[in-house]
Computed example of a mutant assay.
Amino acid sequence: MLRAPDAVLSTPSEKVDPGDASVVQLAADLVATMRVSPGCVGLAANQVGLAWHVFCVDVTEHPKARTTHGTFVLCNARVVEASRKEKGREGCMSVPELTGDVKRATRLTVTGQLPPSGDEIVVETDAFEARAVQHEIDHCDGFLFLDRVAGAHAVYARKTYL
């Protein structure tokens, strides 16, 4: 797991072929890593050292989740529509010692491709799942949540170490 300020974390990712065997393996590895990492609800390829536009999300067990789509992996995802921004606290496996307040859309529509089929899907979500998806898309675009906080006053030392 890479940690800030590793250069890969600030590198915009490359689009991928969702059917490529290495992408399919990466998808499985991301999900497996997410599942064994306490408190983790999403993981992007660049967090494990690959600047590829791939991430997984699963907020099913999170108390703040309203809408959930279970575990899913998206390749080449992009936001189609975003509305109703709200401030919320975020943390990140790549910045384990800090959390921060980030303004994000609470209603979100995203398109992306599924590995290994390459089928394009549309994910419509809200609340915490929308926040998690935007956080992972930011990773793919080379941004950390720290790049989105309003300033130093909105960054906090993590109180619970996972």
Rank of each mutant, 00 (worst) to 15 (best):
48 V>D: 03
17 D>M: 06
23 V>R: 01
45 A>E: 01
25 Q>N: 13
31 V>L: 12
41 V>S: 09
17 D>F: 09
17 D>L: 07
40 C>T: 10
23 V>D: 03
33 T>R: 15
30 L>R: 02
49 G>H: 11
21 A>L: 14
19 G>F: 07
35 R>T: 11
47 Q>P: 14
22 S>D: 15
37 S>Y: 03
46 N>I: 13
21 A>W: 13
22 S>I: 12
14 E>D: 14
44 A>C: 11
13 S>D: 02
38 P>H: 11
25 Q>Y: 06
14 E>V: 09
49 G>N: 07
51 A>N: 13
13 S>W: 06
31 V>C: 05
46 N>E: 10
46 N>C: 11
35 R>N: 14
32 A>P: 00
52 W>K: 15
28 A>D: 13
24 V>N: 02
22 S>W: 11
30 L>Y: 04
35 R>K: 15
35 R>C: 06
43 L>P: 03
46 N>R: 09
32 A>Q: 13
16 V>N: 00
24 V>A: 05
13 S>I: 06
24 V>K: 07
37 S>W: 01
27 A>W: 02
41 V>Q: 01
32 A>M: 09
30 L>G: 03
42 G>I: 06
17 D>H: 06
39 G>T: 11
51 A>D: 14
44 A>T: 00
33 T>A: 14
53 H>K: 10
19 G>C: 04
12 P>R: 06
45 A>F: 07
17 D>T: 10
53 H>F: 01
31 V>F: 09
19 G>W: 12
51 A>C: 12
